[in-house]
């Protein structure tokens, strides 16, 4: 079955416990808040986009380990990158976690390959992609975004009871 035994790896647990770039930035050039209405989790992302590169990025919010680690590792991955490079990485991350591409097929994914396992867990994919959705929203001046938004690549229903 799922190879997500490897999902809760050291690196994810570590980023969950000690998230990098956690907090807010005083005067961000870009900002967005992302919600996962299925679990009530939310994350805000602040970006300082200079002429060339992402000079600074931070996130904060209430979220599960998968989401928090994904956000933390996202901030370390895109800091210092150009907006175009960051957008490519967003596309690769979404393609990998929704199972459209294997992590080997994503040239820029690097250490983020630890999230490949969520593609087997439809109910958890949204947790991993929420920060990336939110970053994309910030770039495109969408103040609040949601994993249930129209353009959401995954519509994994979670049952009611």
């Amino acid at each position: 079955m799922a190879n997500y035994n490897s999902l809760y790896q050291e690196v994810i647990l570590d980023h969950n416990k000690k998230p990098r770039n956690f907090g807010a930035i005083e005067h961000p050039s870009h900002h967005a808040v992302g919600h996962n209405p299925l679990c009530g989790d939310h994350i805000s992302v602040d970006v300082v986009l200079g002429d060339e590169r992402i000079d600074n990025i931070a996130f904060q919010g209430e979220a599960c380990a998968i989401c928090k680690a994904s956000a933390s590792m996202m901030t370390t991955a895109v800091k210092g990158k150009t907006r175009a490079e960051a957008e490519t990485l967003i596309q690769e991350f979404l393609a990998m976690t929704t199972g459209k591409l294997s992590h080997e097929a994503c040239p820029n994914i690097g250490r983020l390959a630890v999230f490949a396992g969520v593609s087997d867990l439809p109910t958890r994919v949204k947790c991993a992609i929420l920060p990336w959705h939110t970053l994309s929203g910030a770039f495109n001046a969408v103040e609040t975004t949601s994993t249930e938004a129209e353009e959401d690549p995954m519509h994994a229903p979670i049952g009611d009871a």
């Binding site: 997500y4 009530g40 599960c64 380990a65 979670i158 009871a161």
Partner: peptide, 24 residues
């Protein structure tokens, strides 16, 4: 220190089915 979703996924790994979320 552990989010309910992580509890649900890890218990599932042990074969245990619980519900996590707001329960409607």
């Amino acid at each position: 220190g552990v989010h309910p979703h992580d509890i649900g996924t890890l218990l599932n790994q042990e074969g245990i089915a619980v519900r996590t979320g707001h329960h409607c």
